[in-house]
């Protein structure tokens, strides 16, 4: 198992290098001059030129790319932000907890709502509840989150005045954004749970459990759920990984100072180093998230766990054979 995890961590290196090259190239080719953005429209051409020189922006593409990679790989240095002059790493770490918190709360909401509704829908297939849940999930996937967020603000903040519309100064501020995000992802999770459950409850081993005299509730909880969880966990993991960087829209709607909003603002300000660092960071957290999901598979399904083990065993055997 440890060997498997180690192997997967090593495999992240080329992925992250690729991400660096792609995002660096995109930012390099994007029109607009960071130096001009920093100094403003009023600055003289010579001042801009001087700043470009000192930031190293006049060097060739390859020189700049190699310099960036060297700094990242050997010094863990993502550079300083052009606008705040603080290290990019600090800027990201300052905002990341907010983003993680929002992602965690909304994923928790979506898992609770989605999995429970999915199970009930599957066990009472074609019932009124199932039909309502299906329409709810259709609504959930069809509504763009930013629009749902705006609607939530109109209803709960403007008309009912129950909850604050934007900012992050206390737990009340988290309710609208996390529920908007959570409910919209719960739709996908619900669909996945439902279809996966429907498949599992028709399996022979469920009949075996009934033949033992087990109660229906225990059959669902003890026998069916764990078997139905693999595709659901995949969706949850993707969703969480996506939310780490993808709650940009919701962060913007509710003015939450998270990583997504920070990256968007930096793109507008042509703060290249922040954008590159931010995207790299998101790619890293997404990869870690995926690895975590894959490890989780092993705990859910012993057959997958034995594959993880046997793949490293096979390698040992092969090594022995070559020696």
């Amino acid at each position: 198992m440890a060997k498997y995890i180690g192997k997967r961590l090593l495999m992240m290196i080329p992925v992250l290098l690729g991400v660096i090259i792609v995002i660096f190239s995109i930012m390099y080719m994007t029109p607009g001059d960071p130096a001009r953005m920093i100094l403003g429209e009023a600055a003289s051409a010579s001042a801009v030129e001087e700043l470009r020189e000192s930031l190293g922006l006049n060097d060739s593409y390859i020189t700049q790319l190699l310099r960036y990679i060297t700094n990242v790989v050997f010094k863990f240095d993502l550079g300083n932000s052009y606008s705040s002059h603080k290290p990019v790493v600090d800027e990201i770490l300052e905002r990341f907890p907010t983003t993680i918190l929002l992602a965690a709360i909304s994923v928790t909401i979506s898992v609770i709502v989605g999995v429970i509704m999915g199970i009930i829908s599957a066990t009472r297939q074609y019932s009124i509840f199932d039909k309502l849940a299906t329409s709810f999930s259709l609504l959930g996937v069809s509504m763009p989150t930013f629009w749902a967020g705006l609607m939530a603000v109109i209803v709960f903040s403007v008309h009912l005045r129950w909850l604050p519309a934007s900012g992050s100064y206390g737990w009340k501020y988290w309710i609208l954004p996390s529920f908007t995000l959570g409910l919209s992802s719960s739709a996908t999770i619900m669909r996945m749970t439902r279809s996966s459950m429907l498949e599992v409850i028709r399996q022979d081993y469920i009949r075996t459990a009934r033949a033992k005299g087990q109660s229906e509730n225990m059959i669902i909880i003890y026998h069916a759920l764990k078997n139905a969880m693999i595709p659901v966990v995949t969706v949850i993991g993707m969703r969480f990984g996506g939310l780490l960087g993808g709650s940009v829209l919701i962060e913007s709607v509710f003015a939450i100072p998270g990583l997504g909003k920070f990256i968007i603002d930096s793109i507008n300000m042509r703060d290249n180093l922040v954008v590159q660092g931010g995207v790299l960071f998101l790619a890293l957290s997404f990869s870690v998230c995926n690895l975590f999901v894959d490890i989780l598979y092993g705990f859910i399904d012993p057959r997958i766990k034995s594959q993880y083990k046997s793949s490293s065993k096979r390698r040992i055997k092969k090594d022995e054979a070559t020696n």
């Binding site: 399996q203 022979d204 081993y205 009949r207 075996t208 459990a209 003890y222 026998h223 764990k226 078997n227 859910i300 399904d301 012993p302 057959r303």
Partner: peptide, 8 residues
């Protein structure tokens, strides 16, 4: 082959 629960 199919009558036993694979995860228990």
């Amino acid at each position: 082959m199919t009558s036993l629960n694979p995860v228990i």
